[in-house]
Amino acid sequence: MLSMALSRRSIWVFHLNTGSCNGCDIEILDALTPVHDVERLGIKLVASPRHADVALLTGPVTVKTLPMVVRALRAMPRPRAVLAIGACACGGGIWHYSYPHLGGFENLRKLLDSMGIVIDVVGYVPGCPARPEAIIDGIIKLVTRKEGGSR
């Protein structure tokens, strides 16, 4: 099933850092470099959200990054998929009690809903940092859902 979903077309991902500590970001990079090499699964990192199928979102969404995050997600074509990577993005992580951020993607999603920006599928990859293997799993799960749901 996995290979079917993936072979249909390649998945372009876009990396969106919303104030993370870099831990998860370097793990995303790790997934792209030779040892994990996600490009073999057709997963390709692109530089613009306009080209992306999936946004890899890390960090607890700090208020200062919020405008960029909103714009980037809005620029993505439908169906939009977001993969919330790391404890920060899933549930605010160790920061969740603090003040200058939204505390993870769930709250951002509520905000986006109120602005009429629909996120079609969301995947969650917990862990601090999330392992590269878990990130690969996450993308595969997300894509399987996305393909299944939209066709």
Binding site: F14, H15, L16, N17, T18, G19, N22, D25, I26, I28, L29, L32, L45, A47, S48, P49, R50, T65, P67, M68, R71, A72, A75
Partner: peptide
């Protein structure tokens, strides 16, 4: 707000 580049978050240098 117009001045914020819709941005490539760089694959190698990853902070906003």
């Amino acid at each position: 707000v117009a001045l914020i580049p819709v941005g490539p978050y760089h694959p190698a240098l990853h902070e906003p």
